[in-house]
Amino acid sequence: MLTIRNLSKTYANGVKALDRVNLDIAPGLFGLLGPNGAGKSTLMRTIAGLQNADSGDIHFDGVDVRHNPNALQRRLGYVPQSFGVYPRFSALRLLDHFAVLKGVGDRRRRREQIAAVLAETGLADAANRAVSTYSGGMLRRFGIAVALLGDPALIITDEPTAGLDPEERNRFHQLLARLAANRVVILSTHIVEDVRNLCPRAVILAAGRILRHGTPAQWVAELHGKVWRKTLAPHHASAARQKYDLLSTRLQEGQLMIHVVADRAPDDGFTPVEPDLEDVYFHLLQRNDRQG
């Protein structure tokens, strides 16, 4: 169980990246959803011990992470938002190096585990290739392979599917789902669909604060009957923005489709729709903007 209490972080330039964040994360896939600049990466890096918070506490299975980050790192698998590799080294060689760093000392067991993570991440065919020649998707999978080395009880993946093609993304989701069976896997993303597909529990973060904490299905249920849709010609977009309190706008087959949250139909032409997580997400962000 990962417990975060009153975690705050303000950067030297005055940006408040985390504002008294409180979280309890149990084993399983946990989504961290938020727009760019919401503080997701700061939170991930702080949990991983890569940067210090100004105040607050982080405990993982009873270990005080802020004061003893090394204890968490012994059980951590971390896949940063972007990362590179040492040039001119094969995946096998690099994984062996990382396995040693992670404390997998026994050579035979190390080799077995490296073989397994390569198979798990679909990199077995490219095991002898220099990692620096990998494509973006392969590199992400290599990151997961590194994260799986040892015995990670907590896996943090920061924007893991950014830049992946649909097939890669799908494989990645399956891998994460398998991994989450007996460990905490935090999936930080701004892609709502990823959270919807994968995470039974999630938070929505904006401007360093948690807007919502719980299960996405419950959030969606709370909006049931309150989301209305209307299709307009695209040139009516600005007029609609002035007239309605829009939740979201999207183009569908050349027509502008607007979503509005309201207890009843705001106007003629609006039809009720089943809300989805994206509606929840935008609704919360909008409300946060208004309150902010």
Partner: peptide, 26 residues
Amino acid sequence: RFSLPTRTGPSAMCADAVYRAVQPSH
């Protein structure tokens, strides 16, 4: 830059590998 010779094809050692956690030794 040097680059490693590219060897493709499934790695024999990975063929039947099943992922199991390995308790790290510190």
